[in-house]
């Protein structure tokens, strides 16, 4: 049996897996753009579509948002 990686190696490998998966984080670190505020528009679009697809989720979202919205900006609620 081949030698198993030590615990430290395992954690390092796992952390690097996580880092490599996130392309925006890697872009920021490799190009030294630490201050860059990236807007993940595609995720946002998908979120909107999710509420269209599943009425219950949209309903719960409205329930969840309501008190927050009211306290923050009462004029905007219809």
């Amino acid at each position: 049996m081949a030698a198993l990686p030590t615990a430290v190696q395992i954690s390092a490998d796992i952390l690097s897996r996580k880092e490599r998966a996130d392309d925006i984080a890697r872009l920021k670190s490799m190009m030294e753009l630490h201050a860059l505020e990236y807007v993940d528009v595609s995720a946002h679009m998908e979120l909107l579509q999710a509420f269209e697809r599943w009425p219950l989720l949209a309903y719960l979202e409205a329930q969840y948002k309501k008190p927050v919205d009211l306290s923050k900006d009462p004029e905007q609620t219809p």
Binding site: A43, E46, L47, Q49, A50, R53, W54, L57, E61, Y64
Partner: peptide, 14 residues
């Protein structure tokens, strides 16, 4: 699963 992906997205957001 589309639903699971959507739920995770909502949770990540919320």
């Amino acid at each position: 699963s589309q639903l699971q992906r959507d739920l995770l997205l909502i949770w990540q957001q919320r």
